[in-house]
Simulated assay, not measured.
Amino acid sequence: MSGDPPALELDGVHSYYGESHVLRGVDLSVETGENVALVGRNGVGKTTTLRSILGLTPPREGTVRIDGEDVTGEPTHEIARRGVGWVPEERRMFKHLSVEENLRVATPPGSDMSKRVQEALDAFPALRDHVDREAGDLSGGQQQMVAIARVLVGDNDLLLVDEPSEGLAPLIVEEVVDALGTLAEDVTLLLVEQNFPMAMDLTDRFYLLDQGKVVETGDSNTASRDDETIRRYLSA
């Protein structure tokens, strides 16, 4: 397997919003089956990195590769068809559809819809009592579970998950972490997360981003927020 290309690779990626230079030469790779965290303060380019991978904010320089193939500049729907799933920070579900309907519309054509929905609900048992409720009526934690469950029903091998613990109560965060941990056993994961201990618990390696550049990378098992370099870049 060592000869296989990475599931995801960014090489010298520069991305802009208008004239604002956000990513400044980001290099990053995630091997197939690996779980990697992208950490850093607010506004350093973490979400822009995900958007650049997805083609939502196409890089002006550099290359994005999925399974060794250059996808830089491809339309977002074509990148998604390569098995890339996205859980955005703002969740973006169909608020007037029920939980079950949200899951069904995310199920790929030709697959066993009922089976996929049941597997997603197995990952989030707390949603079983709410399958007929409109997603817009759920709590923030429940909505986050729906957002992740939607990715579960798709044929996605690479998941990009943006700030899954944002705005959630600690008990709900634990449920989300448990579900992501189970999910991460079967897929390749790139996780953007402000909660540093949580990010380290869920991943194998991490990249630390600051001002649009990777400034540190390392093993999640040995990383500590008390490390002088990490603390310097994570502190407000």
Rank of each mutant, 00 (worst) to 15 (best):
D178V: 01
G73Y: 03
R104K: 12
M93V: 14
K115H: 08
L160E: 07
P59N: 11
I53L: 11
S111C: 09
T47Y: 03
A126S: 12
T107I: 09
A179G: 14
D112K: 12
S111T: 15
P109F: 04
A80F: 13
E175W: 00
V161E: 13
L138H: 13
P125A: 11
D70C: 01
E175C: 02
D70T: 03
E69R: 12
R51Y: 07
L138C: 12
T182V: 05
F124I: 08
M93R: 01
D162R: 02
V36F: 00
A147H: 05
T72I: 05
A147D: 06
D157S: 15
R104F: 06
S111R: 14
E69S: 04
L159D: 05
E100G: 03
L56D: 01
E78G: 00
G55F: 02
E74G: 02
G55H: 03
G181R: 10
T49V: 12
H96E: 15
V131F: 01
G136H: 09
A37R: 04
A37K: 08
A169T: 08
L50T: 11
A80I: 11
A179R: 03
G40M: 01
E61P: 01
E74N: 09
Q118D: 15
L138E: 10
E100I: 09
E100F: 03
H130L: 15
M113R: 15
L158K: 07
I172K: 06
I79P: 04
P59S: 08
W86L: 15
V44G: 08
G140K: 10
V153E: 09
T76A: 14
D162F: 05
R81C: 10
V71M: 10
T72S: 13
V131Y: 00
K46S: 04
I53K: 09
L180Q: 02
T76P: 06
A80Q: 05
L183P: 00
L168Q: 09
D112T: 13
D129W: 08
V36G: 01
K95T: 13
D137P: 04
V173S: 12
D67C: 03
I79C: 04
V99A: 09
V131M: 08
R92H: 12
